[in-house]
């Protein structure tokens, strides 16, 4: 297998991400997943919203659509629905998907439209230099939470499960092989898939919260991510400062475009 350079727009490099940013790790696993599943470069559309992670599609040699803040899934829904032959991947961030785009996220889950969404969860608004998001842990510091964040957080993966996504998994930029495996499973799921990739932002989250640089933050992920099975054996106290990784949900349900195709067939049958 090639090293994947043909899937990149190398003339658009260097990218805008800070040294040590985890976005490249996630993006590379998305590309490897596309490579391993042999998705057609001409039939794959990569859609994003606004934020650091949403700049990824500009570097990827597919049909790429960089939309408005939070709306990537709504644009992607129109695209996929209007041409179900297209393979659609959405790259989004924690602010993009859980705050301003939260409504679109839950409804895309509910419809179970065949789109694979990868949430780059770096716990912060990086593009605007460090404000708290709905996934910033309570108590953490941000430029708009200088005394500590008093907001409660979403568990985005559980939210996606509850809203009806048919494949939901979470892992981290430390667990790259698992991340690629989850992305591939999401892409293979005929329905709406959410892969929450916990990533590190040394510049705006790590520095302010005294977590060190990229290496220290990756080690933090290793130490604080607990697989589902291991978590079952731990007490609530032991889990207090941990987060759970693994596959939360993998259950096929009727896919939205297929249901509409059936509706068209039935309607025409009645004519």
């Amino acid at each position: 297998m090639s090293n994947g350079r043909e899937l990149l727009r190398l003339n658009k490099m260097p990218h805008i991400w800070c040294p040590g940013c985890g976005n490249g790790i996630i993006t590379s696993q998305v590309l490897r997943a596309i490579q391993e599943l042999e998705w057609d470069q001409d039939k794959t559309v990569i859609v994003s919203g606004i934020g650091c992670s949403s700049r990824a599609p500009g570097y990827l040699d597919f049909s790429t659509l960089h939309t408005t803040h939070g709306r990537a899934l709504a644009f992607a829904t129109g695209l996929k629905y209007a041409n179900p032959e297209l393979k659609v991947i959405v790259l989004t961030g924690d602010g993009d998907s859980a705050a301003i785009g939260g409504n679109h996220l839950i409804h895309a889950c509910r419809r179970n439209i065949d789109i694979t969404t990868i949430v780059f969860n770096n716990s912060i608004y990086g593009m605007t230099s460090g404000q708290y998001s709905p996934l910033t842990p309570t108590g953490s510091l941000a430029t708009t939470a200088p005394y500590g964040n008093i907001d409660r957080t979403f568990d985005l993966s559980q939210l996606a499960v509850a809203a009806g996504a048919t494949y939901v998994a979470r892992t981290t930029t430390y667990h790259t092989n698992q991340l690629r495996d989850f992305i591939k499973k999401g892409m293979q799921n005929k329905g709406f898939s959410v892969i929450e990739a916990v990533t590190h932002c040394p510049t705006y989250f790590g520095r302010r919260n005294r977590m060190g640089g990229a290496v220290e933050m990756l080690n933090w992920q290793k130490d604080h991510a607990v697989p589902i099975r291991a978590a079952e054996r731990l007490s609530e106290e032991e889990l207090a400062d941990k987060f759970i990784i693994g596959e939360f949900h993998n259950k096929p349900e009727p896919e939205y475009c297929e249901r509409y195709a059936q509706l068209i067939a039935n309607t025409k049958g009645q004519e």
């Binding site: 859609v47 659509l65 939309t67 408005t68 709306r71 899934l73 709504a74 644009f75 992607a76 829904t77 129109g78 695209l79 996929k80 629905y81 209007a82 041409n83 297209l86 409504n103 679109h104 409804h107 509409y260």
Partner: peptide
């Protein structure tokens, strides 16, 4: 293709997405 979206914002977005699909 007809779709009732979750709000006006997404209706406009989906319309643009579909147009990009041709």
């Amino acid at each position: 293709y007809f779709i009732q979206m979750e709000d006006e914002i997404s209706s406009m977005a989906a319309t643009i997405g579909a147009s990009l699909a041709g």
